[in-house]
Amino acid sequence: MTSNINNEKQAEITSAETDSSRRNFVFGSIAAAGVTIAPGVMLYQTANARSLSDFSLKEGASSKVRWGMLVDTTKQVDWNKCVEACNKEHGLNNETHSRDDQKTQYIRVVDVKNKGTGHSMSLPVMCQHCESAPCVDVCPTGASMKRDDGIVLVDRHRCIGCRYCMMACPYKARSFVHEVLSDQKENTPRGKGCVESCNMCVNRIDNGLEPACVEASNEAIIFGDLNDPESKIAKLLKEFGGKQIRADLKLNPGVYYKGI
């Protein structure tokens, strides 16, 4: 059944390739005609020396990479900083009509208490970027999708707002936009009638930056490539281990937690 998705995707890639070759031809001829590029423009690929930028995004997201996060719940961190950074990055919390239970939250702080032992803790919960994501399976149009590098996100061009993905998500990670929005952030288009969720700050990752919540967490959240044994996150996971929320569902989320 997965092959159907792949076929569809393949068809899309093929059409995209045809398009881009046509365009490359056009751009090539412009370049040959001697159009100069204005000085002072820096290519983003060379702009940042972080390990993230080693990945050439001209090629697109690669299935060799699996982006993931490790949340250390044992660290004393104000997780609201992560929520704040997320809201700021994506321009959330700008609804004017919606009730509180209708407003979008990409990331939330969940307080967990064990009634038996009395032990309690807080942890941030966002889209867990599952390997076998139920939201991707149930989406009728393929709007809910997983990039090759494991990031799960919504293609709003295709989303028809059926909200089946919200029914299917065991982490309650998705929100539906209940009203007309304006003043969106330019990197996070969002609008009425579509479902949305944490996209791991895909725009930042593709530009060599870490997700906003990771940056705001004082290193309580580690971001990196789970597939790369040399990455910090992989080493930490190997040494100290990490748990996934609802691991019993075997969805293999990309977000791990330490101390739950």
Binding site: E12, A16, S20, R23, I30, L43, R147, D149, N207
Partner: peptide, 19 residues
């Protein structure tokens, strides 16, 4: 074309080779 390439494939290359 670009919305498919960027969003679904993660291709962030500049259209005219840089700018």
């Amino acid at each position: 074309h670009d919305r498919i390439a960027t969003l679904r494939e993660g291709v962030r290359a500049k259209a005219d080779g840089g700018k």
